[in-house]
Write a protein that binds this DNA or RNA. Sequence first.
DNA 1: GTTAGCACTCGTATAAATCGAGTGCTAACC
DNA 2: GGTTAGCACTCGATTTATACGAGTGCTAAC
Lengths: 350, 350
Amino acid sequence: MTSTAGGDNQVSERAQHFLKVLIERYIRDGQPVGSRTLSKETGLELSPATVRNVMADLEEMGLVSSPHISSGRVPTDLGYRLFIDSLLTVKRLAEQEVAAMRRQLNDLGDASTLIERASQLLSGVTRLAGVVMMPRHEHGAFRQIEFLSLSGGRVLAILVTSEGEVHNRVVNTDRSYLPAELEQAANCLNAMFTGQDLHAVRRRLVADMKTTREHMDRVMLQAVEMAQGVVEAAEGTDDCFIAGQTNLMEFNELASVERLKQLFDAFTEKSQILHLLDRCIAAEGVQIFVGEESGYQLLDDCSLVTAPYGSDDQVIGVLGVIGPTRMNYPRVIPLVDMTARLLTAALKQQ
Amino acid sequence: MTSTAGGDNQVSERAQHFLKVLIERYIRDGQPVGSRTLSKETGLELSPATVRNVMADLEEMGLVSSPHISSGRVPTDLGYRLFIDSLLTVKRLAEQEVAAMRRQLNDLGDASTLIERASQLLSGVTRLAGVVMMPRHEHGAFRQIEFLSLSGGRVLAILVTSEGEVHNRVVNTDRSYLPAELEQAANCLNAMFTGQDLHAVRRRLVADMKTTREHMDRVMLQAVEMAQGVVEAAEGTDDCFIAGQTNLMEFNELASVERLKQLFDAFTEKSQILHLLDRCIAAEGVQIFVGEESGYQLLDDCSLVTAPYGSDDQVIGVLGVIGPTRMNYPRVIPLVDMTARLLTAALKQQ
DNA sequence: GTTAGCACTCGTATAAATCGAGTGCTAACC
DNA sequence: GGTTAGCACTCGATTTATACGAGTGCTAAC
């Protein structure tokens, strides 16, 4: 397992060190790194010519490439991958930095504002685009439902979950109902469902609709229908907050207007981003997609660094940042990780 | 009032016609318009040389300018202003077009989704950025308030307005309250305020806090405080929806990345946009700011076309589009106008 | 294994030349 | 008087030529 230089498929210790220095340098100033520069930077006393030999090896293995034949080397996706998996030394965050971050997530009662703030926090500290997925499923349990009749036979259904989230939906009904009728229906539903998981509630509601249709009275039937609507709304909040999109405009590797338009369109559309985040929900800790690894052409020259967050030992969502492949991983990774921890803590103390 | 050519300060009929044709042409293809082109376009049988004379007059009056000494003419802000005020012929919208628009605003119970859709509609039909201000003040009247105790002494306050809007806020309290206490307090507040204007309610709450502090029991005091919180939240929803921002990336007059960043930052910040919209709320119908007229440096090369919308004869908000000064006014103006009418109608039938 | 030397590549920067759309002006025309 | 043809001129955009330099690969010597 030790190594002299020139192993065929194995990357020698020295070559790895060179790759590390190269990437760190490239991350710093975005220019292709030449042999002269690198020979000064490694610490080892080696001439540019030697460095060139090593670089040629690295290139052969697909870890670096040169934009043109006579230009320095640039890391490839694969190079970044090796760097991230085994070369990179994450810097611990300064105590006061963590404190500053914690302060930004403090005292924000509502879960959804908390999540919004988290995405702003992410984009602020990393200078990239921050994204936080809304808690997936598990919106907690049914707590209370209420109906208020509006004009024109429409009814406002309000659902409160055990997490303190409030969902509402306006439902068109075929006739208008008396407040007393609605109140009674609500009481009935509350008695049946309070404390139960939203998922279960929805299943039950759907089942009720089918099986006991003929036994229910008009009002109750309508009530079940309305409840179904608002529960679906509560569960289906498949959404995410994205902040700091404009940070991406600062990077000249993304500076073409067409490129930016693609990205921004994806940000407003959100569904692709959500899919991608969804794939990270199972990961243990920080997960990284470099460049084309994501499989989305859209993010070809971007990387995604994510971490799951939860509330009680249970993962309920994913957050992360999107930026150019050339991002400061050693700094971004602990920042994303810490944000996930802080958000988890903040949600727990609710 | 009739005119031969060359009036000193007065713009001759013919010059106005030329200006009109020039602007229409410029709007179409974005290139400075030369004398040769224009002489073919006017319909009149005039040589380029004659056209040049007229152009010189227009330039003297500040209605057009040439980017370089040997390039065609481009309208100035002032030129656009004259065009808009007295030259432009708005095209009536096709019946089916209106129908298609109406369809997009149909059947969307909730007021705030309706408004979101309106901004999407605007951006879709104009291919510019659409913006709709949330209804200003006048969120309707107090309808019902409710308190639910959460863990850790926090209370969830829910307010429903007569418009069917639901606002909620989590409030930290000093001790935990029994459901019965909270219910009683809510009943009390409901009895006092139901049907009253939110403004009045807030004033009353603030007054109560001050004057009768010592006569109120603990629970009631806390309830008033919480109510105040949620009413403020309801009134203070000073927000707007912006859609189709990425449309602006299509215009090469805005295509520099720095320029776009400024704009997009303003869109996420929103406060400047809101101020600007706010100034249009008093206007009768469609209002237009061309270029620097807005007074916001940010929008120097952009125009803003707005129209107020209302619910019952009463203006409650403003909507509009933002795009480059070179936008298709004859088409955009009726589109904005129509969207305002449709939104007004859709809100009324709620 | 390391290194100096050298020919070679190729993007970038600079300068010169060319092109052409469009101008202003003048003098002739109706 | 307004209108027009003619002409010299301007100036951005495009092309071409040239030079520069950072960096490479390769070879031969250490």
